[in-house]
Design a protein around this nucleic acid. Structure first.
Lengths: 145, 145
DNA sequence: TGATATTAATACCTTTTTATCCTTTTTACA
DNA sequence: TGTAAAAAGGATAAAAAGGTATTAATATCA
């Protein structure tokens, strides 16, 4: 496994895709998202259902429905998606899984990983969901394959 | 989940523990390791069995048997344990799970995560298994709780 | 030398988590 | 008001984590 769970990978790609397609209005269906990011459709449905409950994407049922992101959502940090799906285990906590690992009582890798965790966290806090729309539209960035 | 899988967390703690206890000679039993790092004993047995096959720890059966590390193993980089257990997904590959993500055809997070991956990799390549023996003996570092 | 106790290795089973698929409900519109 | 489009919800499958029991190896001692 990579840095994030598979679920989280799909979630991030899906949200970037939805953001790109709907930031100027409109909706996009699960089917189109699944095609656009090359993910299993029904699994993606479950993920989006959850993100929708948390307000990290918006949705509308029925014909002409679909997923979209509103103004506010565009500005939310990517870290919130990661946290919603994978929890905050990647930002805080011990690399060796110790409950009480800290400056005072550190595991052998504490200091080194503290730095790295902080970098990941600040990276994901300072980039927001709508950040990549332009690059995606221009084809500079990819979400598929 | 944190950076590593649970299996990998146990593996790292176990190897550090064995290293600390046996770098000057002697053996340590699964039971004592399990107690020393607070892990499920039989699950740990399976992990160590695998590491032993790969030569990342040494083992001896029978009375006075147990696990230990030899001179050569002490100098092997921690990255090898991570790679043996979790694979290299944390060092290479795409944060969003894309197969063909690269400089040429990058995902939105490619550049940012390339840096972070490289840091993790070089950190784990430059620290070796025996690196923490002193700190562990002195009680500066912890492997339990 | 043979019996025994000690220890890791192997095989198999249960539980939990993660990933995937199938069914139901909602809703716009003809 | 019937129908098709779409998301929401529920059931299932696969993988990871953890537990139980058995087997194999070996040092030691009678």
């Amino acid at each position: 496994m990579g840095i994030f769970s598979k679920t989280c990978e799909y979630a991030l790609r899906a949200v970037f895709f939805i953001s790109q397609k709907t930031s100027e209005g409109g909706r996009v269906s699960i089917k189109d998202i699944a095609i656009g990011i090359d993910s299993p459709e029904h699994f993606l449905a479950k993920i989006l259902q959850d993100l929708s409950k948390r307000g990290l994407v918006q949705s509308a049922k029925g014909p002409n429905g679909g997923f979209f992101v509103d103004e506010t959502t565009l500005k939310r940090p990517v870290a919130e998606i990661v946290e919603a799906v994978d929890g905050n285990g990647i930002f805080v906590g011990c690399a060796l899984g110790l409950k009480e690992c800290s400056e005072k009582d550190p595991c052998p890798l504490h200091n080194q990983f503290k730095t790295i965790r902080d970098e990941i966290h600040s990276l994901l806090r300072t980039t927001n969901i709508g950040n990549f729309n332009e690059e995606l539209i221009l084809g500079i960035n990819s979400l598929k394959r």
